[in-house]
Design a protein around this nucleic acid. Structure first.
Lengths: 219, 219
DNA sequence: ACAAAAGTGTTAAGAATACACCCATGT
DNA sequence: ACATGGGTGTATTCTTAACACTTTTGT
């Protein structure tokens, strides 16, 4: 069978990070039309001889400096049909990823924005961010995905406020600790974080830095 | 920006149905190489001027006689990169759907097979069916998706064995009825099904024939 | 009257929720 | 000594799970 004319295929990445106890998403400022000067998800075309992962790596690297290997969690989010772009339909593969590298070393044209105060976005990217955020919410409830948003060592109050930032509501401190520790995902270290005029907090770490499903769903 | 050489894009559908209290999946017998004479999911190429839904409709119609409007539930399942087919990479959009039209009116080359005894499948379709089955399992636990596998009117024992077929394990009759009825997804009718030398069973129906999420997850 | 599937409640264990005080540190 | 955030336990409610007999029909 010979080659068939197919739609154009693009890829975009929704990269989340926690900054200052807020859930943030990585955006790039567009240079060209359409939507010049608007912010958008990082993305680009998939070439005929590359996989979607390779295209994601290429686009993220070029536009934000972030490499796939710095994303401890990457997963497919959704594939959209977009009508009538570039003279035919386009298919957009959206990936969704978690990052914990901070805000440094980004080019001027890339920036993390708090998901609750995004600028106006190109295409349907605002909807995609909302969808990705919902997905993240459920991921942290039935998997250990939170490992990918936190530094290797963290305190339980940090962990709790990470959950609160992702879920969007406050949790009871005692119940949170009890339930979370019961899951057995983490282990204590024997070091403490001293941070101001109060009792130091014990540092913990995730036992696994790969995704695993929880036996009992969390929160 | 001009047109870019993109991967070939294909679409496949995983269509489930309950037949004789078994979960079954719709397959078509391939005519041509590759995988001639093997069974496979129904699918085909997406043309440049159509959406993935249109391509799905076209492929399903042509190969199985099933129309999209006869599928009360259709959802995207996953998008695969397939390496090095047709001289470049291919992208496969997989849809997943539920059907309740019986086994009639299928052409000779299309057939529903019980998911527990599938023939050898083309490509990676065996893995895809397993993945789809997992998705279905979780869908019926946190949504009312079961409406799409059952006839408009059904008995509670039928409903229970539908859940058992999808989930793959037996449920306690009293707990099932209690929990399910508490969800309030269905309503009783005042008709009964007489079926053999035993007490007739009351017919129920789903209030909604569209997908809705459950407040509390089921089973 | 008997066989066959439909229908129906209660109890016990486990999970979720609500809630208030003491502890360790820096200034 | 005081201000700040870290750390801890119990009682109640709700949810889940286990379990056996009666009802209605056809033959």
């Amino acid at each position: 069978m010979s080659t068939v004319a197919s739609p154009v295929v693009t890829i975009d990445g929704v990269v989340f990070q926690l900054l200052d106890d807020q859930l943030c998403v990585l955006l790039v400022r567009r240079d060209h039309e359409p939507f010049a000067k608007k912010w958008a998800l990082a993305g680009g075309f998939i070439a005929r001889n590359e996989t979607s992962h390779q295209a994601l790596e290429r686009a993220l690297r070029a536009k934000t400096g972030v490499a796939l290997k710095d994303l401890p969690f990457v997963e497919q989010l959704y594939t959209f049909d977009t009508d009538a772009v570039h003279g035919g339909n386009a298919i957009s593969l959206i990936y969704f990823a978690l990052y914990r590298g901070g805000n440094n070393s980004l080019p001027d044209t890339a920036q993390f924005f708090p998901v609750d105060s995004l600028p106006e976005l190109a295409y349907n990217h605002a909807d995609i961010v909302i969808y990705a955020r919902d997905r993240l919410r459920s991921k942290v409830m039935y998997t250990n995905a939170m490992f990918a948003l936190l530094p290797p060592h963290f305190t339980l109050p940090q962990l709790q406020s990470a959950y609160e930032a992702v879920l969007g509501y406050a949790l009871d401190k005692r119940n949170f600790r009890k339930k979370f520790l019961l899951l057995g995902l983490t282990e204590m270290t024997d070091t403490y974080e001293r941070a101001g005029a109060h009792r130091p907090a014990r540092l913990h770490r995730f036992k696994q830095q790969q995704l695993q499903s929880l036996s009992r769903s969390f929160t």
